[in-house]
């Protein structure tokens, strides 16, 4: 292993770990103001929206509809109450069929 690369990896690991770990130390056993608590409870759903869009539209270069179809398949399966794993596998299957047929 090249020492330079190893140092780079250790550095990357540190700067990635610190933001992940710090809140557990900083806010341990502390009661945050109610407004902040409310905002933090909202964070997961806003994050999910931001993680899905716009990235899902670009999973296949040049064909936005590929992503739209995948999103629609997942949304319908989830809306009908399917388990997350079924949603994932269903969406993959629909897109595999789409590529196969196109």
């Amino acid at each position: 292993m090249k020492t330079e690369i190893v140092w780079m990896i250790i550095g990357m690991g540190l700067v990635t770990y610190i933001p992940r770990m710090l809140p557990f130390v900083l806010f341990k056993g502390k009661e945050l103001p109610p407004f902040i608590q409310g905002v933090l409870k909202n964070v997961p759903y806003a994050t999910l929206g931001a993680l899905i869009f716009p990235a899902i539209l670009f999973i296949q270069k040049g064909d936005v509809w590929y992503g739209v179809l995948g999103a629609a398949a997942a949304f319908i399966a989830a809306f009908l109450g399917a388990n997350v794993i079924v949603v994932v596998l269903g969406s993959i299957t629909v897109l595999a069929l789409y590529s196969y047929l196109m």
């Binding site: 759903y45 999973i59 296949q60 997942a74 989830a78 269903g90």
Partner: peptide, 22 residues
């Protein structure tokens, strides 16, 4: 390639699967 591309949707589908029930 087809499998690679279609599997690329997996994590996004998971995010949708987690979000929709809520």
């Amino acid at each position: 390639q087809t499998l690679q591309e279609s599997m690329g949707v997996a994590l996004y589908a998971m995010f949708i699967g987690l979000l929709v029930p809520s």
